[in-house]
Design a protein around this nucleic acid. Structure first.
Lengths: 203, 203, 203, 203
DNA sequence: AATGAATGAGGCTTCATTCAT
DNA sequence: GATGAATGAAGCCTCATTCAT
């Protein structure tokens, strides 16, 4: 299962070709602008980056908050896409697959993850269930996790619901380490070590 | 060693008594306002909470950024204070002392730590060295860490410099877990398990 | 004489059937939307109410102002239609006919008459003469008025030109009274009493 | 009893001298700007006319609606002031006093009375009671009215509550007559004739 | 030193109008 | 002819910062 291009709203009638193209461009521009300058960046800058008028941005996303939310959802969809791809690949080494996937995702998101805060700060209940993204994500992560546990690569008492919280923490540490790659890798490694089987056996 | 009240600038001439009191009140108010409403809260609200005029806030902190920075530094100083207190207590169980201290800190900061982001987003290089706070912090944490390592409670390959990064990540995870105490505790436990000795021994 | 459907422009070539239908639907929708939400309502809402695209609205009325004007003219045409119908009915009690007609009109327009203001505010000289509506209106009102005067039901010194001004004032008072029917009726009654013969005889 | 300068809010502590001056200037500017260009005129134009920054306007009136309301209330206060002055003058000819007062007020407001509409259109319940203006107004009008009735100059069945509605209607008619002074006077005269004693005696 | 009024740049959002499909 | 996406000027409002009191 693959995310429809640019995670467009599922309910309404299909957008005109040019409209869909613009919507996608805005979403893309928003992602990079917000990543670079923080979620406080003016909407107009997103418009400029997308090469459209400010009105077009607001036509597609009637509120700045809606835009932020859409970016977040798109990102989660890509996360789910990748997770499902790894599931489908069905690696011979599920432990490696699991950790590689997590590390890859963290690498990718480390420099640009203020979305959760921006949204929660705005009082938005992060729409985990919106567009079914929550289910997909938990589903795919659950498969990866249980395979890795079955292979003895991950502690048994870890459940899927805890994973996202943990990933966010690790991503945050990585982001804080910033450009210092060695520090970042060490922090990620150490934190992930908490997921391994022997961990937590004694205390 | 104990932090001078309200972390006032070390170089300038001593403030008049009322001025020092106002400075402290503003700092306190800023901490709680920013904690409650995020760092985007208007400076005027801080003034109101402190019971002073807006002009007074800007007299003490010529910029909003300066205010944010001062709050952050004050917080780090308290962090250092606590760490030094734990060092001074010289517990018989250094491992427990170490983890208890970390957990306490996380608990405290989990609900209110947008400072790092707000500052880094603003392009401020977090002033680790400013007012010597970095040194104190690393010093105290270093002692706690090496005692815990000597007692076999923490993995040997962990160095002080990595600790702050890790703490930030764990705090973030805790914050994201939000009001769900069980989830928060689990995430913190799991992530801290990565600091334990057996962790990382095999891979 | 009866108003041609939807008061379409008299000069231009006859519209295609569907176009004429659309024009009428837009005009109707505009009337009810502007009545309900005021003349500041977005043109797009008119389009939605008419079940056509926004482009269609602007094709028929190149300007919002033109749309407003068309609505006003249509309304005046209906006013004239009714007046002419009353003239044609040639009631045995011309005084009653006159006042009944006025009251009916006031009743109808009381809740929805921002057109004059919207237009005059926009600097439009209300196009009394446009499409000959002024003539029809004054003609019909003149007949009703003089019959009522001949019957001794209306003061002799009242001339047609004053009537519209007076009607607007009374309608305004009625509108201001709003939902309070008793108050509205009293105000209308009192103001209309000024039109009766004994009024103004002494001063 | 005379309105405090510029109808400043009664509750809060007295404003600083300069602030009060600015508040009054803004109110004055708002009145003339809205009168000239309608209540849709941009707030910035009011600021310009008052010779202050846009921020100052919003400091005193946190919303455009609040500004409109303040203008309306100021105007009503002046209405009440004048009415009370006429009451105090205690003319020997109460009928003339009554009609002269009404005519004067209408003359004054005829060219600039979109406030009621602007406010009611915005869904504002016209704050008749706010700042006690309703009471003052009705009180003074009531005295003028009953004196005129006692003198036999005004019909007996007219009650104070109806008067404001009627005045609004007459003012509206006068406004519509616009620059044509003869037409305006005639309309006002005719409508006011409805208030005289013989009117309504027969029907 | 403290106060709080004034300032105005800048952000979000709306909506009349144009134009490619 | 109809459609609705795109446009951008313009409006309302916020808030960091300055300055007269």
């Amino acid at each position: 299962m693959v995310t429809p291009a640019a995670a467009e709203p599922t309910e309404s009638k299909p957008l005109r070709a040019d409209a869909r193209r613009n919507r996608a461009r805005v979403l893309e521009a928003a992602e990079s602008v917000f990543a670079a300058k923080g979620t406080g960046a003016p909407t107009e800058e997103v418009a400029r980056a997308a090469g459209v008028g400010i009105g077009t941005v607001f036509r597609h996303f009637p509120t700045k908050e809606a835009l932020l939310e859409a970016v977040l959802i798109a990102r989660l969809h890509r996360f789910a896409d990748e997770a499902e791809a790894v599931v489908a690949a069905d690696s011979a080494d599920p432990g490696a697959a699991f950790f590689t996937f997590l590390a890859g995702w963290i690498e990718m998101s480390s420099a640009k993850n203020a979305y959760f805060e921006a949204l929660t700060a705005a009082g938005v209940t992060v729409p985990k269930e919106k567009s079914g993204i929550g289910g997909r994500l938990l589903g795919a992560l659950g498969v990866l996790l249980s395979r890795a546990q079955a292979a003895g690569a991950v502690r048994e008492d870890l459940v899927t619901g805890e994973l996202i919280t943990i990933i966010i923490g690790v991503a945050k540490a990585a982001e804080y380490a910033g450009p210092d790659a060695r520090l970042r890798d060490r922090a990620v490694t150490i934190l992930f070590d908490g997921l391994r089987p022997s961990a937590g056996e004694r205390r």
